[in-house]
Simulated scan of single mutants.
Amino acid sequence: MHATSTVSAGGDNAANASATIPAKSDSRSWARAFADLKNGFQQRELWSHLGWQDIKQRYRRSVLGPLWITISMGITALGLGLLYSQLFGSEIAAFLPYITTGFIVWHFILGCLTEGADTFISNEGLIKHLPAPLSVYVLRTVWRQMLMFGHNMVIYVLVISVFWSEISRPGYVITEGGIPQPGLNWSALLAIPGFALIAINAGWVVLLFGVVSTRFRDIPQVISSLINLLFFMTPIVWSTDILQKRFGDTVSWRNLIAELNPMYHFIQIVRAPMIGNQQSWHHWAVVAGFAVVGWALALVVLRNYRARVSYWV
């Protein structure tokens, strides 16, 4: 009787001990991370509608509405194009298309960086009340930036229409004494896969920086502080021809300022075909490499911290 009671007590203790051991959580799993991305893409109507509503809300009750995106971009590109073409001794017919396309691509990258860092923070209400995958908010941000890119392309079409005869001419130069360019031709279609590659990178940038920024709220301020430096360090309002004319073809850190800047490669894979500039495979290789490494990091972050975002925002 005593032995039976002991065995019974031992069994109860073992059962209680097993009951107190928490079940292993599967929130940190690759399956859930990939399911989040899959479900996010499947809810296309949700994030596309939210992205378009963001733009409409921003310009609500204005007469021109989203056209203000195009107007502000056009004024900025025109003003800086006129100024820097004179500073660098460039023909406005060659330099204005160069600076305009650079601005258009830069604006897309800039939006993904700055607004991407605030993606989950700005969607706090929806995240806490709407049972949607995190990737929905990532796609919402990227889609909104793509819509703004489409609006800005109106400026590109206008500039190309005005200066077509100059930039379609083989051998034209951006700055005086610069490298002759092949001219605008059918290779301009390469801008489409180039922009698609940038958009793929935009996905991991928004996801990675968005999650990290919910935990460390200083990240958006750090990005905003570095934006102006990145802008002037990137060949947008100046051309790499200037470095070669100033320092020659010798390999030095001064000549590598542009090559060591990732933003230059991102802009060049779209800008070069759009204005008939020389294209190099290494720009594509760098951007593709960033896509692979960036998405690897973003997926690790999504796997480990996806469930915590709702508590951090």
Rank of each mutant, 00 (worst) to 15 (best):
R144Q: 11
R140H: 04
L134V: 10
M148C: 13
E124V: 06
V136E: 01
E115N: 03
D118V: 02
G125Q: 09
L147F: 10
Y156G: 02
Q145C: 06
M146D: 11
M148S: 14
M148L: 13
I121S: 08
F120Y: 09
L147N: 11
F120N: 01
L147I: 13
G150T: 09
N123T: 12
L126K: 01
I127H: 07
E115S: 06
V154K: 00
T141H: 11
V157L: 09
G150K: 03
V142P: 03
N152R: 11
Q145G: 08
D118C: 03
W143R: 00
G150F: 07
A132K: 10
G150Y: 03
I155V: 15
S122G: 12
N123M: 14
N152S: 12
L147D: 11
L130V: 15
R140W: 02
L147P: 10
V142K: 00
H129P: 08
V142C: 06
T119P: 12
E115M: 01
T141D: 14
V159D: 04
L139S: 01
P133G: 05
I160Q: 13
P131R: 01
V154F: 06
A132P: 05
V159N: 03
V159I: 14
F149L: 14
I127Y: 09
N123S: 15
F120T: 01
V142H: 02
I160F: 14
M146C: 15
F149A: 06
P133W: 00
L158S: 12
V159T: 09
M153T: 12
L134C: 12
L147Y: 11
K128S: 08
K128R: 14
V138A: 08
Y156C: 02
V138S: 08
E115C: 00
M153A: 07
E115F: 00
G116C: 07
E124R: 10
H151L: 15
T119R: 01
T119D: 08
L158I: 15
N123Y: 08
R144Y: 04
P131F: 00
G125T: 13
L158Y: 11
G150A: 13
H129S: 14
A132D: 11
R140E: 05
N123W: 06
V157E: 04
P133M: 01
L147R: 06
I155H: 09
T119N: 06
I127N: 11
P131D: 10
I155K: 03
V136P: 00
Y137G: 05
M153H: 07
V136Q: 02
F149H: 10
M148W: 10
V138T: 13
V159A: 05
E124W: 05
L126I: 02
E124P: 06
Y156W: 10
K128I: 07
M146A: 14
L139M: 09
